Simulated scan of single mutants.
Amino acid sequence: MKKLYSVLLVALLSASILTACSETKVNGKKDGEFYSSEDEAFENAKKESTGIQDIIGESKYVDNEKIVIYTIKEKLNIGVGTATLTQND
Results as ranks from 00 to 15, higher is better:
Thr50Asn: 13
Tyr35Ile: 00
Val7Thr: 07
Gly81Gln: 06
Thr84Lys: 00
Gln53Tyr: 00
Glu48Ala: 10
Asn27Tyr: 08
Leu13Phe: 11
Glu74Val: 06
Lys60Ser: 02
Glu65Thr: 10
Phe42Leu: 05
Glu23Asp: 11
Leu18Lys: 11
Asn77Arg: 13
Lys2Gln: 14
Asp89Arg: 09
Thr84Gly: 02
Glu33Cys: 02
Tyr70Ala: 01
Ile67Val: 06
Ala83Thr: 04
Ser6Lys: 12
Met1Gly: 15
Leu18Ser: 15
Leu85Gln: 01
Leu76His: 08
Val68Cys: 03
Lys47Gly: 06
Lys66Thr: 01
Asp31Tyr: 13
Thr19Met: 13
Ala11Glu: 14
Asp54Asn: 10
Ala45Asn: 02
Ser49Met: 14
Lys25Asn: 12
Phe34Ser: 12
Leu76Met: 11
Ile56Val: 06
Val10Ile: 14
Thr50Trp: 07
Ile72Met: 15
Ala11Thr: 15
Gly32Ile: 02
Glu48Lys: 02
Glu43Thr: 03
Thr71Trp: 03
Ala45Cys: 06
Lys3Tyr: 14
Ile17Pro: 00
Leu85Glu: 01
Asp63Leu: 01
Thr50Gly: 12
Ala11Trp: 12
Thr84Pro: 04
Lys2Met: 11
Ile67Pro: 04
Asn27Ser: 09
Asn77Leu: 14
Ser16Thr: 14
Thr19Val: 14
Ile78His: 12
Lys25Pro: 09
Tyr61Thr: 02
Ser22Trp: 13
Glu33Val: 00
Glu43Val: 09
Leu85Asn: 01
Leu85Ser: 02
Gly32Trp: 01
Asp63His: 05
Leu76Ala: 14
Ile55Met: 07
Leu12Ala: 15
Lys29Trp: 01
Val10Tyr: 07
Gly32Asp: 07
Leu9Val: 11
Ile52Asp: 08
Gly28Trp: 08
Ser14Lys: 06
Lys3Glu: 14
Phe42Ser: 00
Asn88Thr: 08
Ile69Met: 05
Phe34Met: 13
Lys29Ala: 04
Tyr5Glu: 15
Gly32Gln: 10
Leu18Ala: 13
Ser59Thr: 04
Lys66Tyr: 00
Ser37Lys: 00
Asn27His: 08
Glu40Gly: 05
Ser14Cys: 11
Ser49His: 13
Ser59His: 04
Ile67Gln: 02
Val68Met: 08
Val80Asn: 14
Ser22Arg: 13
Ala41His: 04
Glu33Arg: 03
Val26Cys: 07
Leu12Tyr: 03
Leu18Cys: 12
Thr71Lys: 09
Thr24Ser: 11
Leu76Glu: 13
Gly79Ile: 06
Asn44Ala: 10
Asp63Thr: 05
Ser14Val: 10
Ile78Glu: 13
Lys73Gly: 09
Ile52Glu: 09
Leu13Gly: 06
Ala15Thr: 08
Lys75Met: 10
Gly28Tyr: 12
Lys46Cys: 06
Asp54Pro: 03
Leu12Glu: 09
Thr24Asn: 13
Ile52Asn: 06
Asp54Tyr: 03
Ser49Cys: 12
Ser59Asp: 00
Gly32Ser: 00
Thr19Asn: 15
Asp89Cys: 11
Leu85Thr: 03
Ala11Lys: 08
Ile17Gly: 06
Ser37Phe: 07
Ile67Tyr: 04
Leu4Asp: 15
Ile72Thr: 09
Leu85Ile: 00
Glu58Val: 04
Ala11Met: 15
Cys21Met: 10
Ser16Asp: 12
Cys21Val: 10
